[in-house]
Design a protein around this nucleic acid. Structure first.
Lengths: 234, 234
DNA sequence: TAGTGTGAACAGTTTCACAGCG
DNA sequence: CGCTGTGAAACTGTTCACACTA
């Protein structure tokens, strides 16, 4: 159908989820067409970059008009591999794990939390977010049942001290995609993909930027991720 | 004392917190000296990059020996602006806000959670993580009291629909550093620094990498953030 | 001699500016 | 005419390889 895109750059892939969210908002509001300029503002990037990113997926825009919201959203979803729902398991049912299990936002985004685990016997057996909490010993069996295709994504929400052990167990059980909320660098075998989300790191980056903003009043601030000036009209 | 460093690149600053954590671990273990190679492995980067990053801070290593752990940790902390403790306020006391308020890990890292807020009258007045939950109306007064120097960092942990409103209130109250957990792009005035942490985005990136790993069995995986092969000896 | 610090080559990313199309 | 798609230029970041020094 559409020409197979040449491999997408890391930088481009990193921005696709942001575009997808902006598109979903527009679609929910009944907007059917959008220009690169408007979509760029809503996504917090400049329009040339957005156009170049999208051009790597193929030619989905109409010159002089813009992009069809529905068509583009579908295409980005497809490229990101969201065509079918992926199972997610959570390890570590403290406050954070609890928050993640209860959060309904995944379902709409192509993910489904299908199991959760904890090491603490006091927590094992409870019901959280509609799921039974399993012991770590049950991990291989439960995983084989809820994600028989071996495509589960694991979220590590344990304390720092338990995270490497949890990662080892997960890898042993065949998991190859891990989202790590514990503030440690995980060592995993090649072929396993780890992404890290770390609160302290984010705060430290904000502190750094704040310091330089105050020290150098002349310059505008420059954020690591998001920065925007204009209010978005409803 | 040390020559004032030329401006650090964004990419370098982004890695400093990671180095700092690795250094803190080593220091806690009583290690006093470390080579660029070992510190690099523990941080998940290659040693040339690490040396170049550190060289931008000044010359803190000893040729033929390595870096003094204590000295380097202090220097990195200083550069990141962690010399004095920064106040943090949390807006949105759902499960996530609750988790953040209870998490003690900040204190050791130069941050102190000093107040929390929620819009819901059922939650206002409760005590969470040793703090009273305030209403949003109290934001300006409370902020002036707990962060009189105007250097507070705000964490937004509200649902997506309330996040922009919360951001507006915070900006009005003088906050200029925001960590946003809500899955929306916030519009803020220039001079305000927003960093975004988004679960769905992270899962989508993992899904993308997983799809390409399975489709192209030849290549090694390449993660957006972390990837490592070797176990770190204790 | 072991390991830092760094210029120089390389790779990747962003921005510019405009041709070309609906 | 307006807006996409895209080469080419500018910039930023990474890797290499080795001079240099404690």
């Amino acid at each position: 159908m559409t020409h197979e895109p040449d491999r997408l750059s890391d930088a481009t892939v990193l921005r696709l989820p942001t575009y997808l969210r902006a598109l979903a908002e527009l679609e929910a509001r009944g907007v059917t067409s959008v220009s690169s300029e408007e979509l760029a503002v809503r996504s917090g990037v400049n329009s040339a970059k957005l156009r170049k990113d999208l051009s790597h997926l193929g030619s989905y825009g109409v010159r002089g008009v813009g992009y069809d919201v529905r068509v583009l959203a579908d295409e980005v979803s497809k490229v990101l591999g969201l065509a079918q729902v992926r199972p997610v398991v959570i390890v570590g049912m403290g406050h954070l794990g609890h928050a993640l299990a209860d959060f309904g936002g995944f379902a709409t985004k192509g993910f489904d939390v299908v199991a959760c685990f904890d090491r603490d016997p006091d927590i094992v057996g409870r019901r959280i977010g509609g799921l039974d909490v399993h012991s770590m010993a049950e991990l291989p069996q439960v995983l084989a049942r809820v994600a028989p295709r071996g495509d589960a994504i694991a979220v590590i929400a344990t304390p720092a001290a338990s995270a490497q052990g949890a990662a080892d167990d997960l890898v042993l059980a065949g998991v190859r995609s891990v989202l790590n909320f514990a503030p440690v660098h995980l060592a995993v075998p090649q072929g396993t993909d780890v992404r890290k989300v770390d609160l302290s790191t984010e705060l430290q980056l904000l502190a750094f930027h704040a310091m330089h903003r105050d020290a150098l009043p002349g310059g505008a601030s420059s954020a690591g991720s998001d920065l925007s000036t204009s209010e978005v009209p409803s």
